[in-house]
């Protein structure tokens, strides 16, 4: 019996970076492969790699192009090196992260897109809060801003499209984009629909509180 092919593809991210995308049907399984290989390549560094960026389904490699070309190597050499390692899915132990309980104010006066979200989904405020606070979300990845955790997966009844173009967002706003949710830890441009607000500190003594593999439970704060 032959093993099923490892479902992944590699795509370039410009001339000095590339990504591996794991294509397992389950987002959770794909994300486990991302974190397994991130740990592997951190412990067994590949020449010319400047940094690794994990995301939901992708692990991206930023290359030091200067060192690469001055050594007469090219990007495809580095990609081949990675492919020799990523040959089969790795079994991973279930994440043993922390659970963070985060209070959220789902109020129209602090959540600029909440009213629109209710119209869009056809839900009452109580139903919307119930669906957003029900899941124990996994922190699939960190990024975008220091302390920002990408959480999923959001119940399909409250999926909201990303805004057509990014706008200014204040710290503490809770957003939804597609099946992802998360909290802006600082002021930033952002394209997510803002459906709540929290004062929860996502940076503690300069260190991000959330880690990839942790879990997050939102609950409605008394207003």
């Amino acid at each position: 019996m032959t093993e099923p092919a490892f479902p992944y593809r590699i795509f370039p991210l410009g001339d000095a970076a590339f990504s591996i995308e794991f294509q397992q049907a389950s987002l959770l399984e794909a994300n486990e492969q991302v974190h397994f290989f991130q740990a592997y390549f951190s412990q067994h560094p590949i020449p010319f790699i400047r940094s690794l960026v994990p995301a939901y389904r992708t692990l991206s490699f930023h290359v030091d192009l200067k060192a690469l070309v001055l050594s007469n190597c090219c990007l495809s050499d580095v990609i081949q090196h990675v492919q020799q390692v990523v040959v089969k899915p790795q079994s991973t132990s279930p994440a043993d992260g922390k659970i963070h309980r985060i209070p959220v104010r789902y109020d129209f006066d602090v959540a600029p897109d909440l009213a629109w979200a209710l119209t869009q989904t056809g839900l009452s405020l109580a139903e919307f809060i119930f669906l957003h606070t029900k899941p124990l979300y996994r922190v699939f990845m960190l990024g975008f801003l220091p302390g920002f955790g990408y959480l999923g997966e959001v119940d399909s009844r409250i999926h909201l499209p990303r805004k057509p173009s990014p706008q200014a967002v204040k710290a503490g706003h809770v957003g939804i984009a597609g099946n992802q949710t998360g909290v802006y830890p600082g002021d930033s441009p952002g394209g997510w629909q803002l459906i709540g607000h929290t004062d929860f500190p996502f940076i503690h003594h300069g260190i991000p509180v959330l880690r990839a593999g942790d879990s997050v439970q939102f609950y409605a704060a008394e207003s």
């Binding site: 991210l13 410009g14 990504s19 995301a55 389904r57 990408y150 984009a177 597609g178």
Partner: peptide
């Protein structure tokens, strides 16, 4: 919509 992923200088 697409899932968030890494970007680079020049994307």
């Amino acid at each position: 919509d697409i899932l968030s992923t890494a970007a680079s200088f020049g994307t």
